[in-house]
Amino acid sequence: MVIFELEGIEIDHCVECGGTWLDSGELELIAEFEGVEPGNLSNALRAEKTGIHSTRRCPRCNKKMDSFCLENSIELERCPYGHGLWLDKGELQAVVATFREGEEGIVAKFFGNLYQNELKLKS
């Protein structure tokens, strides 16, 4: 895992699988810097888990992560102990492509900005 830092926000990135790890709190920071109340955002992430245990483990506590659905379309994983959020390579693309507005849009914009080049290569 390497760390990419843009404007003070740190994103962990796995070079092997292309996935991205967001520590809890980083999401709120992105929103905070854009002047948005971060409350709604984390509520959106508290969506019901799908019940499928992911095969991935939390990079912080090494527990198996829970899968859950964002807006019924994108499946993400999160640590059951709230250490953070995991996005696979494709999931990240989907997030950036799907969300344009609201708090999710802001986060998507940040990712779009950070992963500018990688996303360009794919499309």
Partner: peptide, 22 residues
């Protein structure tokens, strides 16, 4: 481009691409 990359000392590869500007 403004991104700062932090690499752990145990990192095995000898190069890394910036996700923002390539």
């Amino acid at each position: 481009c403004g991104v700062r990359i932090k690499v752990p000392s145990a990192f095995k590869r000898n190069s890394i691409a910036c996700p923002r500007c390539g």
